[in-house]
Design a protein around this nucleic acid. Structure first.
Lengths: 191, 191
DNA sequence: GTCTATACCCGGATAGAC
DNA sequence: GTCTATCCGGGTATAGAC
C-alpha cells in the first residue's frame, strides 16, 4: 500500500494524492485501506516516516569516512539535494503533505536520527556556542532546502547534469556558510 | 475578485483554493468568475502577477539608499523573508500554485523587475565572471527561500520576534555567502 | 481483511435566459 | 455581466455482509 502511495504521489503530488486512486491501482475496494489506516492522514504519516528513514539511509553512506566536520556537513547538504531529486515523492511528503506532525508522534521520532547527525557536525564546528551552532544548522538547512527546490523547479536545467550541478553548488554554498559562521551570531541585537 | 481569492488562499492554502468558494464569499453565482477568467488557472495567474508586483514593491523601499552591493543583496534577502511572513498567501502562490508559467507569459514579465534587481547587485559583487554571478544569485535565492520556509514552518518560534530573527539570520547568511563567493566557482569539474 | 453499497461532501465548467 | 440550472467528475468515510 505504502509503495503504491509513493508511486502515486510521484505522479500527481501529495496534495492530489487520494486513497481512492491508490485503492484502484491496487485492485482493491476503496474502503480496504481504511482497515489499516484510520484515515488519509495516517497513511500519509506512514509515508512520511518512511521518507525520513530513506533520507537518513541515503545520507549515511554519503558521509561515512569523512572526518572533517565541515566536509561532513557539506556532504550532508549535497546528499539532501540529491535525495530530493531522486525521490521527489518522498521529498515532497516531508514538506507538503499538510499533515500535522503534532498529531503523529511517529514522525517526530523518525526525524531524530537526522537531526542528531546534523547537530553533531555543527557542534564540532562551533564548539562552545550553542547559539552559533543553532544558527549554522538553520542556515545550512535553509540553503539545502532552497537548492533542492530550485533543482526541482528546473532552475539547474532538466538535463542529466542538473542534479550534480545542484549538489555541487550546495556543497560549495555550505562551505561558504561554514567559513563565515562567525558572522551568524554577534553584535546588533544579540540574537 | 482577486482580493477575495488572496484572502481565501491565506486561509486554506493555494491547493485548496476553489473558485466556487470565492464566488460564495463574493455573493455571486459560481459561474460568474468564468466571465472574467477562462478557468481557475487564469485566475491564479492573475494573483501570481500581483504577488510579484507586491514583492517587488516591498523590496524597493527596503533597499533604497543602500549603495554597498553586498548590503543591498542582504537587504533584498531579508525583505524577501519578511514578505513571505507578512503575505503568506502571495508567497505561497509564487511557488505552490501549480500553475505552469509557460502557459501564462504575464507571470514571466511580472517577475522581471525582481530578477533585474538581483542581477544588478550580484554583478557588482562578481565583476567579470558571469558564472560566478549566476552561482551567487542562485545561492542567495536558495538561502532566502529556505529561510522563508523555515520561518513559515515555525522553526523560528511563533512569537512576535520570529520574523525579525529570521530576517536577521537571512541577512547574515547572505553576507557569509558573499564573503565566500569565490568558492562558488572554480576547480573540480569547472561548473 | 476484504468486499459491495451507499451517504455525503466537494469541485470545475458549460448552456442559455435575462 | 450576472443569473439559474445542470452535467460531469472526484473524494472521504461508514455500514454490514462474507
Amino acid at each position: 500500500m505504502i509503495d503504491v502511495a509513493i508511486e502515486l504521489i510521484a505522479e500527481r503530488g501529495v496534495r492530489d494524492f487520494s486513497v481512492a486512486e491508490a485503492s484502484r491501482r491496487l485492485g482493491v475496494a476503496p474502503s480496504a485501506p481504511y482497515a489499516h489506516f484510520s484515515d488519509r492522514d495516517e497513511l500519509l504519516a506512514a509515508v512520511t516516516v518512511r521518507a525520513y528513514q530513506s533520507l537518513f539511509g541515503e545520507m549515511q553512506p554519503a558521509i561515512e569516512g569523512i572526518t572533517d566536520p565541515g566536509e561532513r556537513l557539506a556532504a550532508m547538504a549535497s546528499a539532501f539535494v540529491r535525495f530530493a531529486a531522486t525521490n521527489r515523492a518522498l521529498f515532497s511528503v516531508l514538506y507538503e503533505s499538510g499533515v500535522d506532525k503534532a498529531d503523529h508522534p511517529e514522525i517526530e521520532s523518525a526525524e531524530q536520527p537526522l537531526a542528531r547527525a546534523i547537530l553533531g557536525a555543527v557542534r564540532a564546528l562551533t564548539p562552545g556556542s550553542d547559539l552559533q551552532s543553532d544558527n549554522l544548522a538553520t542556515a545550512v538547512e535553509a540553503t539545502a532546502r532552497g537548492f533542492a527546490l530550485l533543482l526541482l523547479d528546473g532552475d539547474f536545467g532538466s538535463g542529466a547534469g542538473a542534479i550534480e550541478r545542484a549538489a555541487d553548488q550546495t556543497a560549495r554554498a555550505t562551505k561558504a556558510l561554514i567559513d563565515g559562521r562567525h558572522m551568524l551570531a554577534g553584535p546588533t541585537g544579540e540574537n
